[in-house]
Structures are given as C-alpha cells and as structure tokens.
Amino acid sequence: MIRRMGKPPQRGVDYRLRPGAYAILPLKGRFLVTAQLTPQVDVQLPGGGIDPGESPLQALHREVLEEVGWRIASPRRLGAFRRFVYMPEYDLWAEKMCSIYVARPVRQIADPVEPDHVTMVLSATECAQSLGNDGDRMMFLRYLGSRNYS
C-alpha cells in the first residue's frame, strides 16, 4: 500500500489518477529544487506527470529538464506516496501517484522552460524547511537519513 500524504479525498469528488516522477538532486552538498512562483511561491522537487506512452524514467528526465534545465544521470527509485489535490492549471481533481527518485545532476544546459518556475540550490536544512508538500518533505528526509548536509 502506498502511503497517502496530505488531505484525505473529498466525498463526491471524481479523482483522476495522475502518475508522476520527481527527483531529489544532490549537488555538492546542496540540492537542486524548483520553485513555482504563482499563484504563490511553492518549493518542489523537480518532476511532474507521466505522459501517455512515456515511461517514468523518460518523464523524470523530461520534467527535470523543463523545470530546472539540468540533465541527470543514474536515477534510482527511492519510494512513492499519493496525494489527493485539485490542479487548477488542468481544472482537474487528481490522485497524484508520486514516484520519487534520487539522481545525479550532470550539467545545466538551459534555463527552466516551465512557466513561472525558477531553479534554486538549497542546503538540506533549507530544503527540508521549504518543500511545499508533506510527501516531498517525507521522502527528502528519508533520503537524508543520518547524513548531515546542513
């Protein structure tokens, strides 16, 4: 069973399953993340939805490039969680099935192309305090374990 994070599903709402792939990106003792600026600042692990016909790893590479402008290597799956949310950009109630990977950032090749996203490089402490959803934070803290990156 995959752990639910955040609010429980609302009665009477028809949720559409929305699988996604997201990355923890350690970079020289710090971490690459993305911040969605509107409607309010929301710090997130880079990643997003898996398109039809796309594998989770293909989606991970595409989404990281779109959101932070970096190529990645050696992704390995850390775990998963699910969230029930409204996605205003799609006018969609979604059951987001979030697979979390750890990958090595190789190099930045572009600026983010995702609208209203900026790339941030944060310490472990800043990242843990800033991530905007409980699931991202839980998986990030699981990754850190007993490591000290602050």
Rank of each mutant, 00 (worst) to 15 (best):
V64A: 01
M139D: 06
R83Q: 14
D91F: 14
E54R: 05
K96C: 10
A59F: 05
S146M: 13
E67P: 01
D91S: 15
M138G: 00
N133D: 13
L25G: 01
V68E: 00
V102Y: 00
F140K: 05
F140Q: 04
S150W: 15
P19T: 06
D14H: 14
N148R: 14
L78K: 01
R3E: 15
F31V: 07
S146I: 12
L32V: 15
L25A: 06
Y101A: 00
E66P: 03
K28N: 13
E89P: 00
E67V: 04
S123P: 04
R147S: 09
L144A: 08
L141E: 08
D116N: 07
G6T: 13
V41T: 09
M138E: 10
Q40V: 14
Y101C: 08
E126W: 04
G20L: 09
P105T: 04
S55G: 01
S99A: 11
R30G: 09
E126Q: 10
A23D: 08
K7E: 15
L78M: 09
A110C: 03
P75I: 01
V121I: 00
P75H: 03
P52M: 11
M1Q: 11
Q44L: 10
G69A: 08
L25H: 02
S130H: 06
R77Q: 08
R16N: 11
P105W: 05
W70N: 06
G79L: 12
N148D: 11
V121F: 04
S123V: 08
H61A: 13
P115Q: 01
G132M: 09
R137C: 02
L144M: 10
Q36V: 04
A103D: 05
R142S: 10
S146G: 12
I24T: 07
Q44S: 06
R104D: 14
A35S: 12
G48Y: 03
Y101T: 05
C127D: 08
P9R: 02
C127E: 11
R142W: 13
I100D: 07
P39H: 10
V85K: 09
M97L: 13
R77N: 06
I109M: 03
A21K: 05
V33D: 02
P39S: 11
L27R: 12
R4D: 07
M87F: 11
V43Y: 10
Y90N: 04
F81N: 00
A128C: 10
D136P: 01
M87C: 06
Y143D: 09
E114L: 00
S130P: 12
I50E: 03
K28D: 15
A110E: 00
V33L: 09
P26K: 08
F31E: 04
D134I: 12
L57A: 10
I72S: 02
D51N: 12
R71E: 14
G29A: 02
A80E: 15
G69E: 02
V33M: 07
V121N: 02
N148P: 10
L78W: 05
I2A: 10
Y15A: 02
I109P: 02
I24M: 03
M120F: 08
G12S: 12
D91M: 09
V85R: 14
M1G: 14
P39V: 07
K28C: 03
A103V: 04
S150F: 14
P39E: 11
V43P: 00
R4F: 01
Q36D: 11
L78H: 01
Q10L: 12
R104K: 09
Y15R: 06
Y101M: 00
R30V: 10
P9A: 12
Q58I: 00
L37R: 02
A23G: 09
K7M: 09
V41K: 14
